[in-house]
Design a protein around this nucleic acid. Structure first.
Lengths: 252, 252
DNA sequence: ACCCGATTCTCATTCATCGAGAGGGATTCA
DNA sequence: TGAATCCCTCTCGATGAATGAGAATCGGGT
């Protein structure tokens, strides 16, 4: 039977297949994939079979498929995220030991911050961040740091878009976001009490490379105590020390 | 002009493009990619442009392209390697603190061990292992553990293939490999003095999931001192403790 | 400013890919 | 245990997404 003209490439279809997997759905059947992507089941079956053969997907025993180990390898071994993470790791571990709770490393991707590393402790405060997870730039401390030092065009684009609200404390007006970005540039850090979760305070500072360009943010998530107005001030020195160490390593 | 019938799919070509990037070559030009893959430069240019658009690749400022952050995200967020790594991380950190040098986490992929995590210390003994790097099963302590507990068919396949030699100590005969695998199953650990590098001793134990299947190996690399025949015995208890903790976490 | 290599664009051609439908296997339910 | 249903794969005719040749454009070096 004649193929249907959609103008969509095979590559685009394969990426959409990969995109249906997530931390909450790590294995899916072919019929699920077809349903989620809108692909014909015969097409989905054939593409899945080829992706399995290439290592992009792997088959489980119960007819479901999952993301393949080879894909992780191809994506990681030459990835800027891995080299950044390797440079950052010793400093992130130190930061984590000092501050406890969560220590995180994020990079900008489009209008989001993507977390490439997160160290957590048992009993740490609630944290919605996941490794390989995203948050909008305006709503997280890492995101605000990355946005404050982003090209002007990107800042305008974020300011022009709807600003999603997670809690009553999340920034959701352009004017407040402009003021916050100016503060971040002036003080060199971002502090976000209750932006994503009422009980969590996020604090982040920028990481620069050898050309002083901001390439990532390092942050911690600690308990948000509205009666403690010194909590941010307490963690900033350790964040800055970690950031300096990471930047130094990146500059070699 | 008419396309040339090679029988090769677009997906296969895209994977071959991704495969040319490695830890030693993280950014390449389109003409390099065409040369390495044998693709026509117009085809390489077009595929690269599309992969950039999809986030599988990213453009650098100097006409070179690198692996894209979105690819890392798709590969990681639902990856069994990431969930294994997250389960293992606290125990790996403890192991690393106790043993020093290197602590590693590996999974089997085909006839190789793929390292999904590696913690290293400043001044640690030489280690050729890289995160997202591979070693043949027969030549590394992690690999021997994974092979010893692999399906019989895979063991026969490895035994039938040429066994690559890295140092004079590397296992390179089938009979010696059979004996070693039997020892690994009997003792519950693998010890590899000087297999990959003369000065490095690798020791590994298996990690099981809830069904007692061996799903990964945890290992350490410490200095290889031929006059110290107790080095392996010294690290095995800490390795076993880490493996038990990881297995327990995986079984929830 | 010029040259050259690298890259992209255009376009005729075609084969890799598609979807419909059939067939077989797996799962579920009575 | 058998029937019904669902899931998945395979085949094949149709075709448009993809290719490669050559021209055009761009970027870097001198």
């Amino acid at each position: 039977m004649a193929r249907v003209a959609t103008g969509e490439s095979v590559l685009s279809r394969a990426v959409r297949i990969l995109a249906v997997f997530g931390p909450d759905e790590r294995a899916l059947r072919v019929s699920d994939i077809a349903a989620r992507t809108g692909l014909h089941v015969a097409t989905a079956s054939r593409l899945v079979a080829e992706m399995v053969q290439l290592g992009l997907l792997g088959r489980e025993d119960d007819r479901r498929v999952r993301v393949g180990v080879r894909l992780w390898e191809l994506a990681s071994r030459a990835s800027p995220t891995l080299s950044l993470r390797e440079a950052a790791m010793p400093f992130l571990e130190d930061l984590h030991a000092v501050v406890g709770h969560h220590a995180q490393l994020g990079v900008r991707d489009g209008t989001d911050v993507l977390f490439v590393e997160r160290l957590s402790a048992p009993g740490a405060v609630v944290n919605y961040t996941r490794i390989a997870g995203r948050l909008p730039l305006h709503a997280s401390s890492s995101g605000l740091v990355l946005l404050a030092h982003a090209p002007h065009e990107l800042q305008e684009r974020v300011l022009a878009a709807p600003l999603a609200r997670f809690t009553p404390h999340t920034i959701c007006t352009p004017s407040r976001l402009r003021r916050t970005l100016a503060d971040v540039r002036r003080t060199g850090h971002a502090s976000c009490p209750g932006f994503i979760h009422e009980q969590a305070l996020g604090v982040a500072v920028p990481i620069t490379d050898g050309t002083r360009a901001v390439v990532a943010a390092v942050s911690v998530i600690v308990p948000n105590d509205p009666t403690d107005d010194q909590a941010t001030r307490a963690v900033v020195p350790a964040l800055r020390a970690a950031a300096r160490g990471i930047s130094r390593t990146l500059s070699r």
